[in-house]
Design a protein around this nucleic acid. Structure first.
Lengths: 348, 348
DNA sequence: GCTCTCTCTGGGATCGATCCCATAGACCGC
DNA sequence: GCGGTCTATGGGATCGATCCCAGAGAGAGC
């Protein structure tokens, strides 16, 4: 570890050295060699040093596979996200990866592209590999059930399918959505559109509920035609947004339910030569780097994906340690970062 | 696989079923069960179906660990990148992940944050796990040597440290850099700064060489003070860029050697209220999504990270199949995407 | 001197799947 | 009827590391 990468003195050996070879070279039994290397059980200090020295000289690296098989306990976790090209999921993976490394765990990462079939395949692979636990941004309820049935701890992140059945870590979608919507209402907007990918998962459902709650708290009516389902694809969403903004009675503000949709709305507004915020106010759920690069900056609900990933993995390790503890849902709060994309409405 | 996730009928069993239990339940020996499930060797069709049926009913998932140990051949690859939060590396990982899945391989992913120590740790973990191969964006020459010594196939992506010693997949940094620099020269720019992270790795070295080559091809002198090493951190780079653009004799154009540096320059220009492209032209190596979102768009060398990842993994599998084949360096070409950030220089 | 404890080591079983090899039975040809 | 081929199955060894357990030797206490 600390000594960096040590390699055998001579030429690379034809076969990888095993603990048996280390033991024979050091003149001890495999058992003693194992004790010397792992530090578990009695070994005379001199013997221990000799064995470790031989191991280093031979470039011995213990076979994690064999160890895992014997100990029936793996040192790796499975992580399944929807789209690595989306900075949100990439940040999640980054946070998880870093914490996993600190705990000496390795991370098996898969990207299901939002497909339940791929999700199922990945779940089966995780079971086959006997991972210690799984962190997933689920696209179906099946995966957590399946993994639970195989006694593999699961944490659902970002959205929750198995409420009450497994741990989850999410941001407080409802109150954050309500908060940004209220800000738009306070600025005087009444025709506020919500562009959303789906409305049945906790993310979509809660964000939508927050948006609705803001209206009813203000005692204002809500025009349901302003809630636009735009799917997951940027281009398709851009076309939907284009249609929305070209309506005879267009919205004066748009609340995009995630960063991809915000990008789509931004592009549509550019195509239509709408100036933001004069002709259109825009807010986004999920703050990603381009939002502070464009002019004006985009007001956004900042969820910290790295922190989310870190929370998920610490929840996972708690679950691994105490499998019987009550199921827990962790809610992280999200803060609104106000930038130039929001202003009082003007008649076009 | 195709049937989705099947779970045992009754309650989840106390222990995970092994092939021995499948065999006993089906009334055959482990050998026969193994043959029935893997499809290798003789099995009577009726027996095969019965065994498979039992396996499905019990929710049997073979232990990849045990199989790997016995077969001495793993079905997973290691991937090591520098920074998952950087869309370039995230795209790389996405491309690799997808292709790995298609070939029924799993991906162990680690993020070394640019640190050689973490890189070394990850390499050791990959050796311990006996992965079938490794794809790495190296930060030192050690890792490929080390893995090679342990007879693990390696492909270096994006940059190359072990020239001639292991396979590599890169974009043609030199000619792409030369091409964009020439475009700036043709527009009339003479004071073109290059903002770069480092100059010793193939990426930095070749991009710098391309920039230099464009000047000498045009027979124009180059002011070395315009080559600015700005490191890896966005904020530090932003400060460097700020200094550069505030010089008494500032550049009329900046060539940023990667997307992070382009972001830094963009932010610095915004801070200084420089209008792009009127007061400053900007080009970037590596095209990421924000560059087409800002106004004006940023002219950039588009390298396709997903394609790069795919090329890397197909090279890796070729290497796994024929370990003795001559070492190969694959160069992908990169294309310049011209946007509004480049224009002829004007005196400020 | 004898028992008891403590340190230290090695033998052998074990984890789960695979695979080589032996063998049994069926069937064929001569 | 006998050797030979082909189908089909089970037994046992194997991969590499760990760990339980037996036991040797040393030292202490009486």
């Amino acid at each position: 570890m600390k000594s960096g990468l040590t390699v055998p003195d001579g030429f690379p050996p034809a076969r990888r050295p095993t603990i048996r070879e280390v033991a024979e070279t050091a003149g001890v039994s495999r058992s003693t060699a194992s004790r010397a290397l792992t530090g578990r059980g009695y070994v005379a200090p001199a013997v221990r040093d000799r064995v470790r020295d031989v191991a280093r000289r031979l470039g011995y690296v213990p076979d994690a596979t064999a160890r895992h098989l014997r100990q029936q306990a793996s040192q790796s976790i499975g992580v399944l996200v929807s789209d690595l090209n989306n900075p949100f999921y990439a940040g999640l993976a980054a946070g998880i990866s870093q914490q996993a490394r600190k705990r000496q765990y390795t991370m098996m990462l898969a990207d299901d592209g939002g497909s339940p079939e791929v999700e199922a395949e990945a779940a089966e692979a995780f079971v086959a590999l006997r991972v210690a636990g799984v962190i997933v941004t689920p696209v179906s309820a099946q995966i957590s059930t399946y993994l639970a049935q195989h006694r593999i701890p699961v944490v659902e992140v970002d959205r929750q399918f198995s409420v009450g059945a497994c741990d989850a870590v999410m941001v407080d979608n409802g109150s954050a959505a309500r908060q940004v919507t209220s800000q738009l209402l306070e600025l005087g907007h009444r025709r506020i559109a919500m562009v959303i990918d789906e409305m049945h998962w906790t993310t979509g459902r809660d964000r939508l509920a927050g948006y609705r709650a803001a209206f009813s708290a203000a005692g204002l009516p809500l025009d349901d035609s302003l809630v636009v389902g735009a799917g997951w694809d940027v281009d398709a969403a851009r076309i939907e947004a284009h249609k929305l903004l070209s309506r005879p009675e267009p919205p004066t503000a748009v609340f995009a339910a995630n960063n991809v949709l915000a990008e789509a709305v931004w592009r549509a507004a550019t195509e239509l030569n709408l100036t933001i915020p004069d002709q259109l106010s825009l807010v986004s759920f999920d703050d990603v780097s381009w939002m502070s690069l464009v002019q004006p900056g985009v007001t956004a609900v900042a969820q910290d994906p790295v922190a989310l990933g870190e929370a998920a993995i610490s929840q996972l390790f708690e679950r691994i340690q105490s499998p019987q503890a009550p199921v827990r849902t962790v809610l992280l709060s999200a803060t609104v970062t106000s930038r130039g994309s929001t202003a009082p409405p003007r008649t076009r």
